[in-house]
Write a protein that binds this DNA or RNA. Structure first.
Length: 272
DNA sequence: CTAATCACCTGAAGGC
DNA sequence: TGCCTTCAGGTGATTA
């Protein structure tokens, strides 16, 4: 479900709602959802701030961290504590605050996780720089690309170098940059690389402005869907005409995922 | 190092 | 109506 823009939307919405709240207790309704590796109590700790890196949400507490990953169908929302929890069949974890309100984690498919750790790196050690981090320059980006024999879609999706892109925004970025998803990284020229770098930023910024994309499950912290799906150029448009050239959009499995691209605009290139 | 497959889960959609 | 297969905004482990 959520990629960087959806996670960013949730973080921005939750920030004014939960920063400053004191935790009373955490209840795991589905055991596997909550992974406690901190070895200290959550009770009495105050949420100092809420941040994000890639698709991870980081709650900074006094003496430890809660790190949330929504995976495919996870949702976070704040409840005033009055509602009936039995109305929420997919509730997996609940963070009860001293003021009576609570942060709910619902997740139909049970892939999502909430980690309680003493150090952020315990969870994020293999996660690269955030795709919208202002410290990420083109030179930096191209250094990651240039000697890699991996396909560019797999590279963008991996999270290891650049974090935040998932299946939707990878396909949309590659279309905007006119690069074939199976293009090998080391065959991407500096000029193409520059186009890809700016395409990624443009696609992600626009998606954040549109409060993310909703295909079926994603909802923000208020339960609202995003509207960026209205602007997809290739994602889920297989068999439809390309907006740029009219050729039919293709779909094939690349890097293990359903991948959408225009065979005319995004040609595989053999050399630089 | 890179790619492919499976595993983890539930539910929706399409074919017959 | 119902059964069966496939697919889904993700990622981690394991196997070639």
């Amino acid at each position: 479900m959520p990629e960087l823009p959806e996670v960013e939307t949730v973080v921005r919405e939750l920030r004014p709602l939960i920063v400053g709240k004191t935790i009373d207790r955490v209840e795991a309704i589905w055991q596997k959802t909550f992974v406690d590796q901190a070895g200290l109590s959550l009770s009495g700790q105050i949420i100092q701030k809420i941040d994000r890196r890639g698709k991870f949400i980081i709650l900074v507490l006094n003496r430890s961290y809660l790190i949330v990953h929504l995976r495919m169908t996870g949702r976070l929302s704040l409840s005033n504590g009055q509602g009936d929890l039995s109305d929420l069949p997919h509730l997996r974890c609940l963070i009860q605050f001293k003021d009576g309100s609570r942060l709910l984690f619902e997740d139909m498919r049970k892939f999502g996780r909430i980690y309680h750790v003493k150090e952020v790196e315990e969870v994020l050690k293999n996660v690269g720089i955030d795709a919208l981090d202002t410290h990420l320059t083109f030179e930096h980006f191209y250094d990651y690309l240039k000697n890699r024999k991996m396909g560019v879609k797999a590279f963008l999706m991996s999270q290891k170098w650049i974090a935040g892109l998932g299946n939707i925004y990878t396909d949309e970025s590659l279309f905007l940059a006119k690069i074939h998803p199976e293009q090998t990284c080391d065959q991407i020229s500096p000029g193409q690389g520059r186009k890809l770098f700016t395409a990624v930023q443009e696609i992600l910024h626009r998606a954040v402005e549109n409060m993310g994309s909703t295909i079926s499950d994603y909802r923000d912290a208020y339960g609202n869907p995003g509207r960026n799906q209205l602007y997809f150029k290739v994602y889920r448009r297989a068999g439809k005409p390309c907006f740029a050239c009219g050729a039919l959009i293709e779909k094939k499995k690349v890097a293990g995922r359903g991948t959408h691209f225009c065979p005319q605009c995004q040609k595989l290139r053999g050399s630089k």
